[in-house]
Amino acid sequence: MSRLAKLLFAVVLGGSLATTLLLEASAQQVAARSSGKLGLGRPALPEEIKAWDTDVRPDGKGLPVGKGTAKEGDVLFQERCASCHGEFGQGVGRYPAIAGGIGTLKADRPDKTVGSFWPDASTVFDYIKRSMPFGNAQSLTDDEAYSLTAYILNMNDVIKDENFELNEKNFASVKMPNAAAFYGDDRETAEKHFWKKDPCMKDCRTAPKVIGRAVSVDVTPDSKAGPKVD
């Protein structure tokens, strides 16, 4: 459609939708109009990038130089982590279990832990380094993060030898048991039948019966338990 035809089409359509189409610039259009440099921002210095860029990928990219064993990690874990995750990684209260659960993913109540579920070992290191211990993030040294990662992998039988030294050179060779069980989003093919031309409007099913009630489960918080706003 030519530009004029588009305009005419919009006018004929009338109403708020057409107006919206004409008035709202898309993010791409605004970006295109500002093409060329704005001259805003300043170069990030190498020290600044080093301070913030701590992320680690499955191929080992981003791993800092360092090392640690499960044996060293055990000591640290009992001191810094066990109050939430339990002495053996079994979890305390509603804090997550991080060990065990192997073979439960098809069970009625799957137990998704680092060993039973997580596809990549690098995630353990990345997450410990950026957010653990809960409430005192980024307080661990690189060697401590290696030791804790080694201990967690040892609890999950991924690293068998507690004296095995995990470091930036051998890290990417660690393979997780459930890695092959992940695949990309395929909803648009696997659930293609949810795209329907004419969903049923009349006499679509037999008389429904109530087969479950939330009030029987009785886990809804009382409205009085809401936050006070006074």
């Binding site: 992320d55 680690v56 990928r57 499955p58 993913l105 098809k106 799957p110 998704k112 680092v114 579920f117 997580w118 596809p119 990549d120 690098s122 995630t123 990345d126 997450y127 069980a181 992940f182 695949y183 990309g184 989003d185 395929d186 909803r187």
Partner: peptide, 25 residues
């Protein structure tokens, strides 16, 4: 990057024990 939030969380465990990931939409 396969971060914690896109692997251990926000992935969809299906009945056959496999999991979909990057289910963004």
């Amino acid at each position: 990057w396969q971060t914690r939030e896109e692997t251990s969380k926000y992935t969809d465990l299906l009945a056959d024990g496999r999991s979909r990931k990057h289910t963004f939409v």
